[in-house]
């Protein structure tokens, strides 16, 4: 299973920077970073090269952090590609709880990171659609 890290942050200057410093000091590469905020606090999502080490490093630095299971899909970097993916999931009644993406080196493909409650259903829905799910051990090497 693949994970990203979910970190509780107070919405104040300098709070996010503390997270990135801890990860940099631990020699971990950040593949993607996103932030969801609800006014005075929020949750930062961090996809790092080694989630277990990242988790331990943040925990040691007293962060409130948890590991969340993710799926990563590779889609073509073209208009409508994300739409196709979401339509496929929706038609199988798979709800996307969290999602962000980044374009891969070379610019021909994009990686889409998403959290769903129904992982087997999501995997089944995407099988045979041409949308490729990145195997778990490949995610951190993207």
């Amino acid at each position: 299973m693949a994970f990203h890290l979910s970190v509780f942050v107070e919405n104040q200057p300098g709070k996010l920077e503390r997270i990135t410093r801890v990860l940099a000091d631990a020699g971990l590469n950040i593949r993607a970073f996103s932030m969801a905020s609800a006014g005075e606090f929020g949750v930062a999502r961090v996809l790092v090269s080694d989630p277990e080490r990242g988790f331990a490093a943040l925990k040691d630095a007293k962060f409130t952090v948890s590991r969340r299971r993710i799926l990563v899909a590779l889609i073509d970097d073209r208009p409508g590609a994300l739409h196709d993916l979401l339509v496929t999931l929706a038609s199988h009644r798979v709800n996307v709880e969290d999602c962000y993406g980044f374009v891969l080196e070379g610019g021909r493909q994009a990686a889409l990171v998403f959290e769903v409650e129904k992982v087997p259903e999501a995997e089944a829905a995407l099988a045979g659609t041409g949308i490729r799910l990145v195997p778990d051990d490949g995610i951190y090497r993207l």
Partner: peptide, 18 residues
């Protein structure tokens, strides 16, 4: 303070908790 071990990682749970 949010307890470290109680956090499951979602924004919704934080809003619900508050």
């Amino acid at each position: 303070e949010l307890r470290q071990d109680a956090f499951e990682g979602t924004l919704a749970e934080l809003e619900h908790l508050a």
